[in-house]
Every structure is written in C-alpha cells, then in structure tokens.
Nucleic acid binder design. Structure first.
Lengths: 198, 198
DNA sequence: ACTCAAAGTGCCACAGTGTGGCGTTTGCTC
DNA sequence: GAGCAAACGCCACACTGTGGCACTTTGAGT
C-alpha cells in the first residue's frame, strides 16, 4: 500500500532505487549528525549522487527528510478516496487515518518516528512539515465537501491538529502498536477539550 | 499597545528606527515584486543598511516580513497575561484575541493584510508563519494551564486553527472593522463543525 | 570638557542551498 | 546494433546567512 505498483522498466526501477536510497540514508545521516548541521553534500557523497540528480528527485533538503510524512498523507488521501463518506465527518477522517496507519509497512514504522524526532529538533523541518499539512488539508477539504465551507475547513483543521497531538503523545516511546490507541484517545477528547474551563 | 514604552536612550531610538524602516519597506518591496523574487539586497539598498546590520536586527528575510504577525501574537500573550482566566477557556482565548485586535493601531491594520497576502503567495513565508503559530501555542498553553495536558493542547490548537479560518474569510476584503465579526462567527462555528455529517 | 568602554555598523570573505547550461552516458525501441 | 530520449554528472552562478575585523558613535565616569 505504501508503495504503488511495480515500475515496469529498468530505468524507472533504478531511479526509484536512488530515490529510496536518498530517503533512507537521509534519515540515518540527519538522525546521527542533526539536520541543520549536516550538509547536503554529506548525503550526496554517501549515496554517490550528484547535486543535479538530487534536485531532480527532491525539491529540497527538507523534502527528502520528510519522505515518510509525505508517504503517509499521500496514502491517506488515497484511502479517503476509497472510503464511503457517511455519518460524522470526524469519524470518516479518523477511520481513514487509522486504516492508512494499518496499511503501512514495517520499514515505514521504522523511519516515521525518526522523522518525527528530526522535525522536533529542526525549525526548518518543522516549518516545511506544517506547510505540507496545510496543503493536505485543502486536498482533504476537496474530497469531503465544498472547500469554501467555513465549518468544513475548521473541521479538517481540528482533525489534523488532533492527529498532531496524538503524535506528541506517541513520540516518547513510539511503539508501533500504540499509535492507533493514541489516535482514538485524542479524537475522543475533541469535544471535551472545547468544554475546558479555567 | 503595539509598541511598548519609549526607548530612553538615543541609541535605542535610532536602532528602533532602522528596525521599523526595514519592516515597513520590506512589506512595500515584497508586496510589489514578490517575496521569493525580491533579493534581500534590494531591501538593504532601499533602506541603506548593510547586510551585517540587517541580520543583527532580524533573524532572516522571512522574519522581517512577518513583523506584523509577530507583533500581534506578542501583544496577544501580554493580553492573556493581563486577563482573568475564568469560565470557558475557548472564550478566554477568543476574548483575549478580540481585545488584542481592538488595541492595534491603524498602521498595523495597513501592514497586516499585506503581510497575509505575502504569506499566501510564498511557500517559505507560509512555513515560517505556521511555525511561529506553533511556538505561540506552547506559550499560550503555559499561560492557560498545564502544557502537558492533552485536552488543553488540543483546545489551543483548535483556537489557533479557528483564528486562521477567520483570517481566510477576512482576507478577500480586509476591511478592518469586519475582522472581529469574522472571529466571532468562526469561534461560534467550532462546536457545529465537529458535528458535520456527510 | 575629556577619555574610555561598549554597542552599532560597514566591509570582506566564506559556507551552504538551489538553479541552469551542456555534454555524456544509459536504457528503451525498432 | 543503431537511433533516440531520458537521466546523469560536471561546471558555474545567484542568493541567504555567518564570522572576523576595523571604524564610528554613544553614554558614562571623572
């Protein structure tokens, strides 16, 4: 599910391999020496790829570091397309998210927490990550109704915010099996949080 | 309210003047020629300030462009400190926001919409803006309760998201008098949005 | 008034990111 | 195997942001 169908031609397979090598090595290197303090050249030397080629595959240094996050949301939108929209939209969003998480493979569950830690430690990555979330939100709005509807946009903002809070809870241990539980708990807390009093 | 007490010494006044000149000219230049397409040197030449001096006053090109936004949130936190926290926390947040907006001067209401338009058109500014919002959220959490409380963090996320949605509604015309109305409407829609059904 | 330390500033050089041009290799197709 | 298009590598460049160093201004002490 996380990786779409086989690339037919050898050329495409090779290209995909370098893409994956870049993404995986990026997480390793940045996790080891820090994102901001690791020059892009270190990654290029490690994977033995020229700068020109890198920038044909990824838009920026941040882009390659956020591969796991982008994979999740890309798959999420696919899941959303494939699910029947009925009942509470919050539930639709939450269930699509849980379904997507369920379909992720082990490799992803290894790289995703590492990516979260990188995001937490780098201001630049944080900004790029938040911006990507915002882009996904407008995509989700198109799939769930009229993207010009204020209440719909707010609902999606709330759902994504809830997801981020669930991640915050998960981040310390990052046990793969516990993520769905955190997501359910956070989504259950949505209504109560609005009722909080001083 | 937006600018704190007079700077006593001449030196500080001079420094403040260059800071303001940089921020104002930045909005003008970037609004005219685009943020990403305008080199920083263009701003430095216009204000007649060396690069070295600029980076002592602002952390980045994005930083100077977001001055109006940072001013708002800075004032908001001050307002939050000065208000009595009682009753619904959502209301506390909303009222502090409305109070802050009410105290902004005309110059701010001129630069703020221009800043919003810049943010909308530049991916980089968007990222920095969102990241700044996230930083403010943790600050607000400290002022409203235990920042480790899941429901509190979610509530604040929801409030800031609501504020962003209100801005989206306001952005087309940007009539200063209508902003509070948009804010009230958006905050009123919070509960209903969670009940949306397909 | 004079001096002095500190803060501010300008100039210079450098590291890092991202882009465009252009020749060369590689894999696909016939 | 020959031609073709995509991908690649190398080179050079623009822009952002940082550090070093010398010079000027400012506020304070005497």
């Amino acid at each position: 599910m996380t990786t779409s169908g086989e690339p037919a031609t050898l050329r495409e397979r090779k290209k995909l391999r370098t893409r994956q090598a870049l993404a995986e090595t990026a997480i390793e290197l940045f996790g080891e020496h820090g994102f901001d303090t690791t020059p892009l050249d270190a990654l290029l030397d490690a994977v033995e790829v020229s700068r020109r080629t890198f920038f044909r595959n990824y838009r920026s240094k941040e882009d390659v570091a956020l591969t796991a996050v982008k994979q999740l949301w890309s798959d999420f939108l696919v899941t959303l397309d494939g699910t029947e929209k009925s009942g509470s939209l919050v539930d639709v969003f939450r269930d699509a998210l849980l379904t997507t998480l369920d379909h992720m493979d082990d490799a992803w569950y290894e790289r995703f927490p590492a990516t979260l830690r990188l995001i937490d430690r780098s201001a630049s990555l944080n900004g790029h990550s938040l911006r990507h979330c915002a882009e996904i939100q407008t995509e989700a709005a198109h799939r769930l109704g009229d993207p010009r509807d204020l209440e719909l946009r707010m609902l999606i903002e709330f759902c994504v915010a809830t997801w981020r809070c669930a991640l915050d809870e998960w981040l310390p241990d990052c046990a793969p099996g516990e993520l769905p539980g955190h997501v359910r708990r956070a989504f259950s807390a949505m209504n109560d949080s609005l009722l909080l009093r001083a």
